[in-house]
Nucleic acid binder design. Structure first.
Length: 194
DNA sequence: TAGCCCGTAAACAAGC
DNA sequence: CGCTTGTTTACGGGCT
């Protein structure tokens, strides 16, 4: 159905500057991701990030060019993305953060900074400056196994972004919508992780 | 202006 | 039967 598509139609803004205002909207590249999804093995619960740390089985998801920067992404989050909505600041990739900090807790990086920044920037009462894709990504990343059932994703979001607690329930629909739409998120058998 | 991305709403199906 | 989950479609707004 749609093999007619270069793996990377835009891959990544050639000029990092392009994604300025979207400094934090990298996780999805619907275009490619959508194509790459030809798999249909899993079929139950928990969602997990497709590429990132998984392995080869996600080859098809390789299209997740954005994930290849998963770590970078996170950094981006904590650094430029949220900091202060400052689009890019480290085009050179000059991350002052521990380069080899595998990820003691991405959450730390994400929430730590993200939350902080977010909190500082607006307060947990405001709509988070991240797209649903980002939120979902963070939630899953925050999970020990990199996978979370939908319910937990809701919970995670509510926990970290109280804004949604008082927000209309429509956001859940949006979450699910993103989950389905972005092939970046993959469904995995419940057996494997419950 | 056009195209792309995102958010939201809604409809529908399937499973529990 | 009702709720949750998953998928899909459509529309509008913002940004480049």
């Amino acid at each position: 159905m749609g093999p007619t598509m270069p793996p990377s139609k835009k891959a990544q803004s050639p000029s990092s500057g392009a994604s300025a205002s979207q400094g934090m909207s990298p996780p999805y590249r619907q275009g490619d991701a959508a194509t790459a999804a030809s798999e249909a093995e899993a079929s139950d619960l928990s969602l997990s990030l497709s590429a990132s740390f998984s392995k080869a089985e996600d080859e098809e998801l390789t299209s997740l060019s954005w994930l290849h920067e998963s770590t970078d992404l996170l950094n981006s989050f904590s650094h430029s993305g949220l900091r202060s909505v400052s689009p890019l600041q480290d085009p050179d990739g000059q991350h002052s953060r521990s380069p080899s900090s595998s990820s003691p807790s991405l959450e730390d990086a994400l929430l730590g900074d993200a939350h902080s920044a977010y909190d500082l920037a607006a307060g947990a009462n405001r709509k988070p400056p991240y797209s649903f894709s980002c939120l979902i990504f963070m939630a899953i990343e925050d999970a020990p196994n990199k996978r979370l059932p939908v319910k937990d994703i809701y919970g995670w979001i509510l926990e970290h972004f109280p804004y949604f607690a008082s927000a209309p329930t429509g956001w859940k629909n949006s979450v699910r919508h993103n989950l389905s739409l972005n092939k970046c998120f993959k469904k995995v058998d419940k057996d494997r992780s419950q």
